[in-house]
Computed example of a mutant assay.
Amino acid sequence: MPRPLLTTPGGASSTGEITKRSFKLTDGRDIIYFDDADTVLSPERAPDLREPAARPPTATMRQDVLTGEWISVASARQNRIVLPPSHLDPLAPASAENPSEIPSLYDVAVFENKSPSFGPALTGPGSPEGLDDLSRIGLGRNRQSVGRCEVMCFSPERTGSLAGVSLSRMRTVVEAWADRTAALSALPGVQQVFPFENRGEAIGVTLHHPHGQIYAYPFITPRTAQLIRSIQGYGGSLFEDVLSFEQKSGRVVLRGEHWTAFVPFAARWPLEVHVLPHRQVPDLAGTTAEERDEFSHLYRRLLRGVDALYATPTPYITAWHQAPVHAHRNDIRLMLQLTSPRREETKLKYLAGSEAAMGAFIADIPPETAAARLQEAIEP
Rank of each mutant, 00 (worst) to 15 (best):
M1E: 08
S244G: 07
P128L: 02
S145P: 06
V82Q: 07
S127N: 07
H258V: 00
S168G: 12
L83I: 07
W259M: 09
G11N: 11
V146A: 07
R3I: 10
L243C: 10
E344H: 02
L302S: 05
L41D: 05
L187C: 10
D132S: 13
D331V: 14
G233A: 15
L227G: 05
L91N: 06
W70A: 04
L207D: 06
P52Y: 03
F219A: 12
L276Y: 13
Q192V: 05
F23G: 01
G233N: 13
N98S: 13
C153G: 05
A176V: 11
I31N: 07
P324Q: 10
K114Y: 04
L139F: 14
S244H: 06
P195V: 03
Q375I: 00
T67S: 15
G10W: 08
V325R: 11
D48V: 12
I228R: 12
Y33F: 15
P2E: 04
E51Q: 12
V174T: 06
P4I: 11
A266Q: 10
A74C: 03
H326K: 14
T67Q: 10
Y310T: 04
G119Q: 08
D107P: 09
K24V: 04
D36V: 01
D132I: 05
A216I: 03
L298F: 04
S155D: 11
Y215D: 03
L271Y: 00
P4F: 10
D107E: 08
R199S: 12
L254T: 02
A360D: 12
S354R: 12
T58G: 06
G256I: 01
Y299D: 05
Q144W: 00
Q213F: 01
P222D: 13
G68A: 11
D36M: 09
P103S: 10
V82I: 15
R45I: 02
L184E: 09
T369W: 00
T60G: 00
P103W: 14
F262N: 04
V281I: 14
T15C: 04
D283Q: 06
A267F: 08
A308G: 06
S22C: 14
L83M: 10
F219G: 02
R304T: 12
I365K: 03
S42M: 04
P2L: 05
H278E: 14
H208K: 09
E197H: 05
D132M: 03
V242W: 14
Q375C: 01
E355L: 09
P47M: 08
Y350R: 11
S135R: 13
P188T: 03
R342T: 00
Q247A: 12
L207V: 07
S127F: 07
L139P: 04
A308R: 14
Q232I: 02
A109S: 14
T206E: 06
T206H: 02
G68L: 09
L303D: 11
E129M: 13
K20F: 10
T314F: 03
V151Q: 03
H258C: 07
R223V: 15
R229P: 06
A308W: 09
S161R: 08
Y299P: 01
R251V: 08
S244Y: 01
L298C: 07
L338G: 03
F239N: 07
F219M: 15
G353F: 15
E294V: 01
Y234V: 15
P218G: 01
R373Q: 13
S185H: 08
R333Q: 15
R171W: 04
T181K: 02
G68F: 09
L309D: 05
L49P: 06
T314W: 08
L284M: 15
L338E: 04
P116L: 01
G204P: 09
C149H: 11
E44S: 15
E379L: 12
D89A: 06
